[in-house]
Each structure stands twice: as structure tokens, then as C-alpha cells.
Simulated assay, not measured.
Amino acid sequence: MQTPAAAFSSPLAARQAVRSGSYTGYTAALVPGYVQANICILPKDWASDFLLYCQRNSRPCPLIACSDPGDPRLPSLGADLDIRTDVPRYHVFRNGVFTEETTDISAYWRDDLITFALGCSFSFEEALRDAGLPLRYLDLGRVAGVYETTIETAAAGPYAGPMLVTMRPFVAADAIRAIQITSRFPNVHGAPVHIGDPALIGIDLSKRYRDVGDGTVGRGELPVFWACGLTPQMAVMRAKPPLCITHAPSCMLVTDLRNSSLATL
């Protein structure tokens, strides 16, 4: 997996590198200070129930933008932005089954497709680091471990399924501070959904969702779990729409929004 050797100078520069195919890796810390978004693209006939699913499950699915049918632009997220080319890697699902990964979805694009952009925990990670809290996996060029839980989301039409979470380890004092900080970011998953014993929410730390991220918990540390924007992938697999396109894990859309714009006082 390609990881950034250095941050890009602007969100536009990052999107242009992705669009050209010169960057196809993880986007954590790619452009410090700017919001990144989880992506879910669905046919119009399947979109209204998904919108309701997001509204009923705002922790894992915090909606920050939605496109018009067939429009590959998201003007509220960036003036020069094309959803067909500006995500490093996409996952394509057909009838609920993951079928392929690609770096460009122009060939899949249709006039009835609607893009949903959801907030991403990469935004609050910056706030955690600014507060001096350690995130070892970022120093190693990795991302937080992702896990499937036994926490069921609220169903909407055909969309339902378990919540996915990301895990970050902290000593107790830092965990308290992390809860305080992330509570200020409800549009990017907000406060944790669980802290402590992973088994209480059905998690074995050695079994990550699609082997994504780092599940290491050090001596004296507590695992802290936040709702994850990969949750809609589970709902899509249950709903089985004829076509759905998402970002690949940890390969987000870099937007022109500032992280600070999503923080509450």
C-alpha cells in the first residue's frame, strides 16, 4: 500500500495527483487541516432509503454532502472535484457483492448515480495529535484498525447491518482526553461508542475487517472504539443494490473544507 512520503500543499494538489494516477494510497495525513470524506455512490432508486439510513445512524454515517443525480461534482466540498477520478481507489459492489477495485470509475458512471459523502475520523485524528495524544499507527504509515461489531444499526428500507468501528489505544488519562476532543466533532463520528473490553461488542482484536489497519494495544493501554464510515458497506451488502461504488478502506476523498469547520464549540 502506498503511503504519503510528504503531505501535499493543498487539497487540489492531492486530488490532481489522485486524478492523474500518480497517487493511489492511503489518505491519512495527506493534506493536514482538511476534511476527508467516505464515499457511497448509489442509483437514484436506492438513494432515498440510504439517506434515511444515514439520518438514523449519524454516528457511523455522518452525511456532509450529497450530489444531484448524474452529477459527478460536489461543489460544497471543492470547486475542482470530480468524484469519478478523485478517490485513490474505489470498491465496486454488484448485488451486494464486492466485485472489483479500480482507480477510476468513469466507465461505470451513469446519469442516475447519486454520491453521498460522509465525514471521516481522519479529521478528529488531527485534533488528537494537536493535543499531543500519541497515534503510533500514523507514525508507522498505517491507519487505525477496523472491526465489525455486534452493535446493530437502525434499519431503513433494505439497509441494515452491524456497526463497524475503528480502534485507537490510549492510556487511561489520554483516553479521557480523546473522548473530550472527539465529542466536539459530531460530523466526523464524534465521541467513542465503546471503551475497554472488545468482547463486549463482539470484537477479537486479532480479526480486523478486511485486515485493515493496526490492532496493537500496548501494555497499560485501553482500546477505544469509534464508529466507522465503512459501516455503509455492510448495509449495502445486505441491501444488494444492483450497483454501489464506495471508497476503498482508508482511501478517502480529500475536500476543500477545513477540519475546524466541522468542530462544535
Rank of each mutant, 00 (worst) to 15 (best):
Q2N: 09
Q2W: 03
P4S: 02
A5E: 13
S10M: 03
L12P: 01
A13V: 04
Q16P: 00
V18Y: 05
S20D: 11
Y23E: 02
V31D: 10
Y34K: 12
V35N: 08
I39H: 01
I41T: 07
D45W: 03
F50V: 11
S58H: 03
S58A: 07
S58C: 01
S58K: 04
P62M: 07
P62Y: 11
A65N: 03
A65E: 07
D68M: 14
G70D: 09
G78V: 12
D80V: 15
L81C: 04
D82C: 09
V87K: 07
V87N: 03
R89W: 01
R89D: 06
N95T: 05
E101A: 15
I105M: 11
I105H: 06
W109I: 02
L118H: 12
S121M: 07
S121Q: 04
L128A: 09
L128D: 11
D130K: 12
P134V: 09
L138I: 15
D139Y: 07
D139R: 14
G141D: 06
A144T: 13
A144R: 09
T149Y: 06
T149W: 02
T150L: 06
I151N: 00
E152S: 13
A154D: 08
A155D: 00
A156Q: 09
G157L: 06
G157K: 05
P162D: 01
M163R: 06
M163K: 02
R168W: 04
P169Y: 10
R177M: 06
R177A: 13
Q180R: 13
Q180M: 10
R184Y: 03
A191M: 03
P192I: 12
L200M: 12
L205E: 01
S206G: 08
K207V: 13
G213K: 13
G220T: 03
G220K: 06
E221T: 07
A227V: 05
K240N: 05
H247T: 04
M252A: 13
L253M: 10
N259K: 04
